[in-house]
Amino acid sequence: MANSNLPRRIIKETQRLLSEPAPGISASPSEENMRYFNVMILGPTQSPYEGGVFKLELFLPEEYPMAAPKVRFLTKIYHPNIDKLGRICLDILKDKWSPALQIRTVLLSIQALLSAPNPDDPLSENIAKHWKSNEAEAVETGVFLITAKEWTRLYASGV
């Protein structure tokens, strides 16, 4: 049985995710595979993703917690640190991972990344350029904001 030797730490984390979910985030393990989570993150207020419901998937590899969880977006999103396949460029998912971090902290960091993109470490050069130009002009009408909002409406409307 796939789930019989699930480490205690993963069980604990899962229970807490279900009983005390972080605001705007839900994560629940799939029935067949307790290391595989369906995740939903609400677009943060005052970000171009506001009003959006973003689906992600998360997997705890065998080495977890010595290795980071694997996470990606399933909902299309216009963001300089997220590529077309939903892969996320975030330091704690790579070289800055520490076993002291948890599924919850990872998801909170991803939510924070939606509020504050990191254009100096982009996966998508084009989107980063738009984001920077928008920041420089500091106007609502920047290409980045318009496109990010449009994609949120088109792909993340949650219906």
């Binding site: 796939a2 595979n33 595989y36 998937e57 997997f59 590899p61 065998e62 892969r87």
Partner: peptide, 15 residues
């Protein structure tokens, strides 16, 4: 193939 019961889901396997 972890040699154990851990199953890498389809999408992460393809990645």
């Amino acid at each position: 193939s972890a040699g154990s019961s851990i199953v890498v889901p389809r999408n992460f396997r393809l990645l």
